[in-house]
Design a protein around this nucleic acid. Sequence first.
DNA 1: TAAAAAAATCTAACGTCGTTAGATTAGGGG
DNA 2: CCCCTAATCTAACGACGTTAGATTTTTTTA
Lengths: 213, 213
Amino acid sequence: MPSSTRRARERANIRASIVETAMRLLESEGAAALTIRRIAADVEYTAPIVYQHFANKDALVLELVVRGYDQLLAELRRVDEASDIDGRIVRVAAQYVRFAGEHPHLYQAMNGTVTSADERRRAAAPAIDLLTELLDAWSEAHGVTLPDQSDACEILWGTLHGMAALGYLGTVGTERAQRLAEQACSTILLGWRAAGSANGLRAGSSPRSGNSG
Amino acid sequence: MPSSTRRARERANIRASIVETAMRLLESEGAAALTIRRIAADVEYTAPIVYQHFANKDALVLELVVRGYDQLLAELRRVDEASDIDGRIVRVAAQYVRFAGEHPHLYQAMNGTVTSADERRRAAAPAIDLLTELLDAWSEAHGVTLPDQSDACEILWGTLHGMAALGYLGTVGTERAQRLAEQACSTILLGWRAAGSANGLRAGSSPRSGNSG
DNA sequence: TAAAAAAATCTAACGTCGTTAGATTAGGGG
DNA sequence: CCCCTAATCTAACGACGTTAGATTTTTTTA
């Protein structure tokens, strides 16, 4: 047992290295390889050590999910450069789908049911806020008042996830999923503008449903 | 020899009741409760009996997924009544999300990674074909030629899944998810019409991307 | 109808998982 | 040096998917 050499190394950073190792394991080998024993072996400890830092496996996965959303938000911000607002939204959309394609196992964990809906909502909130800001800017730039801002934001958020799912589920390739996300966003924005300006396009196309609620 | 045919029938009955029990178990108690031993106990056999009808658990789950897509398709067709084409699409969209909300565990299995991308594609193909037909009819009804019919279909399919995910992941309630799906579809259709008619709306809103590939 | 052959079904086990209790070891203060 | 406390490990539990081999049931044959 190399316990002496190991103990010489990090002593208080066990928790950090557990998280780091778990993240690497999840990303490189998928959720099936993310076992407590494997994580412990990779940090050169035995399994019970994990339970001194996390109540159970779900708590550890939740930490990975939170970090995943942090990283996603950072990458969305990174591509949200100054340009026309439509271009910003479309670029952010493509980057969202790219993230899902580049970190498929992490993305699946972020949208899986091992973390509760509340926890997931909390983790995703900052990223959703970014979408809200973008929509605000878009709305102002085009002078279009959306029927319901939060409906619009969730439609956008859901659409991004839908296009990402096309990619990570293997329905289409990830690069095509990115193009589809760009097209879908552009189309939705165009639709909102068309709905905003009361031109003839609207006639006969919208269903019975009234708009907000 | 009539005995062999009877035995074949009994075998088929066992297989059918395994599938039926597994489906009920999945829908009522979720994927965590779907264990081989539990299924066997519910059909009043022991665990190994399952392996005489399915190579492994994944094969059984695949059968549930296929049946899930069959049921989904049937429900989509059921609400696809004669009316204006936009109304048909919007109703089908809402029904898709309703299905996901009413059968969350089954829907998750249908979109999970235990079944391979190929198998899932095959199972979902008829439902996707329905979308293609609806889009064809829409395109003809409005005299709008979509840049790429299969891109459009996948955008629609992905959007439906995105809105459904908002519901079954608990981001929003399922009834709200249905409304969002209706709005999203209406908006996309409106956007496609706006893009089709070369009016001033297009200027400044579409990104660099050329259309198909 | 009784033995032999075949099919159906069960028991028991393997190795894995998450998780916990109790033994064991290590480091610091008398 | 020894004790005490904390850190860490060993061993186990029950449940999982899965398989091999024994056992029971059914069919065929003499």
